[in-house]
């Protein structure tokens, strides 16, 4: 067994900060230590514990793709203590990172299938990783559809990427904002994600649906997907139980027999249905 202190974080330099939306930032982080950088590997869907030394740790998924090496990215919304401290960081500052933890999207199993990504609000980050992973190996998949919704135009994150995806002929991008959230020049849809999904009615034929977003969005999206012919094991989502350790010791993310940090955060709808309502 490993003989190193599992709580000791890697030190990472904040290389680039992008303001995505009010209170939402993306950090590009580079390892301070070259050796650690070379040894580091992760897969789409995994997360880490990010820390501002002196303020504590916080859980975010790794939002960059494993196909893009040399750095990792995270996108977070300013909420509590650690995220507020992160928001005060500047390029060049040093932060801590432990990871990667958790399971991954079974992207290898999806080869030869079409992919339907559905994201709401700030839940695009966990998906961005798998989207880039899929687009960087585009030949492995059939149709790629991305449906992304936010409260209003200002809250849409990854505006540059959205433009990239929009421009790609091999991606179908649908963006939507909640009624009232549109600006005069808004060209996307207006409506809640489940309604827009129902209208777009993507085919469920040989397709996997990946859904991330606030619980309420997920709750109303799942029945629509079932209506469209998706089955329990062709729908995937991620859970966000409160976490501390990230490796099955602190007990915090325990939900039924499952530890979200070890067995998740990625779950099929089938697995989700077997869990008690404690997430």
């Amino acid at each position: 067994m490993e003989e190193k202190n599992i709580y000791k974080p890697y030190l990472m330099r904040v290389e680039k900060i992008t303001l995505e939306a009010p209170g939402v930032r993306t950090f590009r982080l580079k390892f301070e230590n070259e050796e650690e950088a070379n040894a580091f590997e992760f897969k789409a869907g995994q997360f880490g514990e990010y820390s501002v030394i002196g303020e504590g740790e916080s859980t975010f998924c790794i939002a960059s793709s494993p196909t893009r090496k040399g750095y990792i990215e995270c996108t977070y919304r300013e909420a509590g203590r650690v995220t507020s401290a992160l928001a005060k960081c500047e390029e060049g500052d040093v932060v801590g990172f432990r990871g990667p933890y958790g399971n991954t999207f079974p992207i290898d199993e999806w080869k030869g299938k079409s992919l339907l990504f559905i994201a709401g609000g700030i839940a695009l980050p966990p998906m961005r990783c798998v989207i880039w992973n899929a687009l960087d190996t585009r030949e492995n998949f059939k149709d790629v559809t991305i449906l992304y919704g936010a409260k209003n135009v200002g809250d849409l994150v990854y505006k540059n990427e959205l433009a990239d995806w929009e421009a790609r002929p091999d991606v179908k991008l649908i963006t939507t904002v909640d009624p009232g959230g549109q600006t005069p020049d808004w060209k996307g849809e207006v409506g809640f994600v489940p309604a827009v999904l129902e209208k777009a009615a993507p085919s469920s034929e040989n397709t996997v649906a990946i859904v991330c977003g606030p619980p309420i969005m997920i709750k109303f999206t799942l029945p629509v997907l079932e209506k469209l012919g998706f089955t329990e094991d062709t729908i995937y989502t991620t859970l966000e139980n409160r976490m501390k350790c990230g490796f099955g010791k602190c007990g915090r993310c325990n939900c039924g027999p499952v530890y979200v940090c070890k067995d998740g955060p990625v779950f099929s709808y089938k697995q989700l249905k077997a869990l008690p309502d404690e997430y």
């Binding site: 504590g56 740790e57 409160r242 501390k244 350790c245």
Partner: peptide
């Protein structure tokens, strides 16, 4: 074995600590 992880500062110095926690606290999963 449940625990919390926190940082404690003393000026520029400090330590990351692990302290006991309990699933019976209302804030445990909040």
């Amino acid at each position: 074995a449940c625990f919390d992880i926190q940082d404690e500062n003393h000026g520029k110095n400090g330590h990351r600590i692990r302290t006991w926690d309990s699933c019976c606290f209302s804030q445990f999963t909040l």
